[in-house]
Design a binder for these strands. Sequence first.
DNA 1: TCTACTGACATGTCAGCGACATGGCGGAAC
DNA 2: GTTCCGCCATGTCGCTGACATGTCAGTAGA
Lengths: 227, 227
Amino acid sequence: MTAPLSLAPNLTEQATAQLRRAILATRLAPGATISESGVADLTGLGKAPVRAALARLADEGLVQPLPRRGWVVSPVTVRDIHEVFGLRALIEPEAARLAAGRVDAAALEQLDAVCRCGYDPSDAESALAFLEANTAFHVAVAELGGNRRLARTLARLLDEAARMLVLGLSARDRTGEMQTEHGTLIAALVAGDGDAAAHAAAAEIAASRAMVTEALLNPCSTARVGA
Amino acid sequence: MTAPLSLAPNLTEQATAQLRRAILATRLAPGATISESGVADLTGLGKAPVRAALARLADEGLVQPLPRRGWVVSPVTVRDIHEVFGLRALIEPEAARLAAGRVDAAALEQLDAVCRCGYDPSDAESALAFLEANTAFHVAVAELGGNRRLARTLARLLDEAARMLVLGLSARDRTGEMQTEHGTLIAALVAGDGDAAAHAAAAEIAASRAMVTEALLNPCSTARVGA
DNA sequence: TCTACTGACATGTCAGCGACATGGCGGAAC
DNA sequence: GTTCCGCCATGTCGCTGACATGTCAGTAGA
């Protein structure tokens, strides 16, 4: 799990990736407290890279510092869900509109990956892998639009949304729906129809939002909501 | 300049604020290289807080790391201007729309501060102080909308825009225009007219964008463009 | 039951070591 | 004489370890 023989870009990146994945998979549950030394011991890394990683994740909104006390995994509130999906609904359709008519082989490749990557509804790791592919797909679309800042902002939002969706995806399998939604979006992008692309993106966001909201309001047996 | 007797929330915050201000005022010109030890010696702080501050500013897009080589102040390209103002144009009108009808005394106070704060077109520090008040005003409006993530994203964009505007503001005094633009926006907010507020915000962004573009395409005697 | 104290624990910071990339210098080949 | 190549000195980050500081939980005492 510590991936000691990776090609090691640097330890900070490793620590960031490990922690981010653990948080998004809810292996570190919302509301859980974590300590630098604890993470350092667990990962085998030093405290400095762990500290830098936590600072970065705090900047991304996934953890919050408790001065002199430690760090806490940001809880997921209804307000957070409103904020994340509200912002996604604002910028993602526009990103799709900008990308319309600019699609190339790379985008279709990303699509292929996400479409063929199913998941096991009862396994958070599997669901996260699916969501990571989904994130990569949407970020790739945003990058096609040419606005790197928009793509970056969206990537951060999608990371937060992924954590929320891990809760929702465990409730029911939505692979099929997402595939058709992606298909609609890609068709619009290839056709260069900006309005249709924006509409497809908005529809997908609305569906995701509904699923998360439903999962939190009607917690099923398999849905575990932290904090 | 080092403010040694401040109430010291922590050194990282101090280093971040000092560096950010130096970059936004173009005291650290775009393209300039900076070293951790150099900043540490200059500010009297240790390397650790300086390093953390640089990492955070890199996350904000104001500096870029050169592994094993140092850090460089992010240059300002035409593409950057398009991206920043394009994204502002996307989210800021919506922020104004959300804030419509929710204004309170605090917003008017911010308004008052920014309106009474003139600047000297030939002094980058003075222009930056004006822009900081302008940023605070717009962020306050965004926060009234209730979406903290939207407000945070906007704050970051406004910081980047401020650096670009420092170049443009030195070309000509735009205090009067901004005051009337703010007046229009506030009137719409108080009246609860979301469409009018969004329109006013969009108009102000377009004006700022035009000024920056003009300043870069037709560099005046007083406009210094780094890198 | 409430208060003050003490111990443990976690962060915040600093000084130092090793690794790596760059630029300049000298020498050899043409 | 000119050009090119390899070596070395220099400067910087990336990371480690240790110390100082601040907070909280648990406990003894009034």
